[in-house]
């Protein structure tokens, strides 16, 4: 008998493909959240594999804060076109204009929290009964408790204390009308796995992930790129630094790290040596100890 053995990346990929196909089979109208961040790119890449030679049987969905780096938006549009997927964009600005979301004020205002409103409105308006997300359990302590198939009530809320047990490869996506599921095919990937997988698969990423020179300001210990959304405040010094981003979020809150890693190999070395989690420089998680759990309960990604 041969050596029937799969490497850890092959096992993770097989699991993610299984989850993606299960989502297509159990739901009528799923959407795949696509922010052009690395996790959503990996998820879309695996989705292409899962349904090859057919196209991905769901649209890409982007909740756009309007505060994205232009590189992100460019990449998003190009990618959707390349794989022949429909792209649905939910604009936070539309929610603000409708009055359902209210722009935060004050020094650390961000549109991060408003994304929840727009996401839930998009889900309702497009009648998505499942939304695929690139969330991973290693990212954050509340996410470590997340299921592959995560139930949301008709207000889009998550009840972490009362989750359905998930055993073996059996996923229960049954629900009442108005309820929906969040599905996380990459649950068992770690940040390192994602990088190793992207390297193996030769996945293309937005240039922001690689080290490049940029004007920055340092605010509350977080390095922010100067852009139309982030302008230096009184007393802040603009510094030219060689930086890269470890996660891709709203430009107002996504911190950069100083880095010389301009290739995937170098990034992998850097990730291996990193002493901070990738969300460690996300101002949104720093608001309180349970910031992520609180946002997730309300319906955040």
């Amino acid at each position: 008998m041969g050596n029937y053995h799969l490497s850890h990346l092959d096992q993770l990929e097989a699991e993610a493909i299984f989850i993606l196909r299960e989502t297509a089979a159990q739901f009528e109208n799923p959407g795949l959240l696509f922010s052009a961040g690395k996790d959503s790119i990996v998820m879309a890449h695996i989705a292409r594999k899962a349904f090859y030679p057919a196209r991905i049987p769901f649209p890409l969905v982007h909740v756009d804060t309007g505060h994205n780096f232009p590189e992100t938006i460019e990449f998003r549009d190009k990618y959707a076109e390349q794989i022949g997927a429909r792209l649905h964009i939910g604009l936070v600005q539309d929610s603000i204009d409708r009055g359902t979301a209210v722009e935060e004020t004050g020094a650390n205002a961000s549109r991060n929290k408003l994304q929840t409103v727009t996401l839930l409105e998009t889900i309702e308006e497009q009648e998505y009964d499942a939304v695929l997300g690139g969330g991973r359990r290693d990212e954050e302590k509340a996410r470590a408790k997340e299921r592959f198939f995560s139930h949301r009530n008709d207000f889009g809320e998550w009840d972490p204390k009362n989750q359905r047990p998930e055993l073996w490869n059996l996923f229960n996506g049954r629900k009442q009308p108005g309820e929906h599921f969040r599905v996380f095919p990459l649950s068992n990937f770690t940040e390192m796995d994602v990088w190793m997988y992207m390297h193996r698969e030769g996945i293309e990423l937005p240039s922001l992930y690689y080290a490049h020179e940029r004007d920055t300001v340092t605010r509350n210990g977080v390095i922010l790129a100067v852009s139309e959304f982030v302008q230096p405040r009184d007393g802040e010094v603009v510094e030219r630094k060689k930086i890269r981003f470890r996660t891709m979020g709203d430009a107002t809150i996504t911190g950069a790290v100083e880095s010389n890693a301009d290739t995937m190999e170098k990034i992998i070395e850097e990730v291996a040596a990193a002493r901070q989690t990738e969300r460690g420089n996300r101002a949104d998680d720093k608001r309180s100890e349970t910031a992520m759990e609180d946002r997730k309960k309300e319906g955040y990604f």
């Binding site: 359990r137 290693d138 996410r143 204390k161």
Partner: peptide, 24 residues
């Protein structure tokens, strides 16, 4: 506190739900 991720778990000092952890 590393493994007890939920607010209720941290308050009560008990583990309520399965938590998945990763190392290599």
């Amino acid at each position: 506190l590393l493994t007890d991720g939920l607010k209720a778990e941290r308050e009560q000092g008990i583990t309520i739900d399965v938590a998945y952890r990763y190392f290599a």
